[in-house]
Design a protein around this nucleic acid. Structure first.
Lengths: 202, 202
DNA sequence: GAGAACAACGGAACAATGTTCCGATATTAC
DNA sequence: GTAATATCGGAACATTGTTCCGTTGTTCTC
């Protein structure tokens, strides 16, 4: 986040900013994308060694940046949550309120569908993931709330919907009773979106 | 299931029944209960060695009876499903239809609540567990259907409830949005049961 | 009851994988 | 250019699932 050149000249002063080597951050982002690819390909249970190899770094480097395996999983999930959340702003600037909302719900669906394995890990009870549910709910719920309010403001959709409830509903619709593939999920979400529109002008 | 003494005297006949050593089954049931205890205590990720030690047998014995770790998990789950299912018959013979239904739903709740870790393993996508969901649904759904029909017959509860839907509903109520503890679950199930009663005489 | 056949057993050995550790390397400050 | 040190790579270690085989004890036959 901060560049090494912004540091003070003297290193002996009390507030010592440890110099951050240039390639360290490159490695970190390379690790993140490598991990995302491997998780998508081989599942969240893929060996750390496979991720290190894909990123072209050593095992030590992986554990330097992510002391535990779960830290890597958390980081990948967070980056994807951020991407999904950020997509809301882009869609807002590019589409009408109603269309932006619909497109983002589809985006959310893709996100949830792709994270099947991650979700399983999430619910495993491992304390390493304890903070994630709240974070996901807050981040994505906030994004959805803005989209929703904007669509409500122009009377494109009904006004009695809570963002977190809608978020949870769509997320739930993407996982069948036992976690099967969401073959019918897209259709159901479309129906749900139509339902939002329908109620706009009762 | 069959005793060694029921075998034919000659072993050289075509239909060779391999003699089942006496203590083998003792070990098997000891393994099952040991596994159940360990899973309950240390979670489903507990090492096989811990189960072997608790059962007082060697590692080889565990793998002789359960070639894979997942077989042990499946066996424990099945035995508990059977126990829960069998409880329906006992309750039927001991209580009035309405009371039996209510008590069994509480029994079901305990079962689901205790199986938190097992459920996570179930949804992991491992093909070893592929057949379980259908089995559980059929076995417990069948048990519930009998209880339900009996209660409906005496007009103790409303008649428009499907057994599998009710089963799934109660099971779902025992897991919060992210799999938290079911602090409020018992109350909610009680409310649900009251709802069943309330609709009996509209 | 003695002996043979062999099912069952116990645990060492192997394989896969998460994690730690440390010498080697490369970058930065001066 | 040189020293300091952040970073790196991978060997080494620990844990755990799984396999393998020599040993043990039971069952059957005589």
């Amino acid at each position: 986040m901060k560049t090494p050149s912004t540091r003070a000249t003297k290193k002996s002063t009390a507030t010592k900013l440890p110099p951050v080597r240039a390639h360290a951050k490159q490695n970190l982002s390379a690790l993140l994308s490598a991990a995302a690819e491997v998780f998508a390909t081989s599942g969240v249970d893929a060996p750390v060694r496979e991720i290190a190899e894909r990123a072209g770094v050593g095992l030590g480097t992986v554990y330097r940046h992510f002391p535990q395996r779960s830290d890597l999983i958390v980081a990948v999930l967070q980056s994807h949550v951020e991407a999904c959340s950020d997509a809301a702003a882009v869609l807002t600037s590019e589409y009408e309120p109603e269309e932006a909302l619909a497109r983002w719900l589809h985006r959310l669906m893709d996100f949830v569908g792709a994270k099947r394995g991650l979700a399983t890990a999430l619910h495993s009870g491992d304390p390493a993931y304890a903070a994630l549910p709240g974070y996901v709910m807050e981040r994505l719920g906030g994004a959805l709330r803005k989209l929703l309010d904007r669509a409500i403001a122009v009377k494109a959709v009904r006004s009695d919907i809570d963002a977190e409830e809608l978020l949870w509903t769509v997320a739930t619709m993407c996982r069948g009773p036992y976690g099967e593939k969401p073959a019918y999920a897209r259709k159901m979400v479309d129906v749900l979106i139509d339902g939002l529109r329908y109620g706009a002008n009762p």
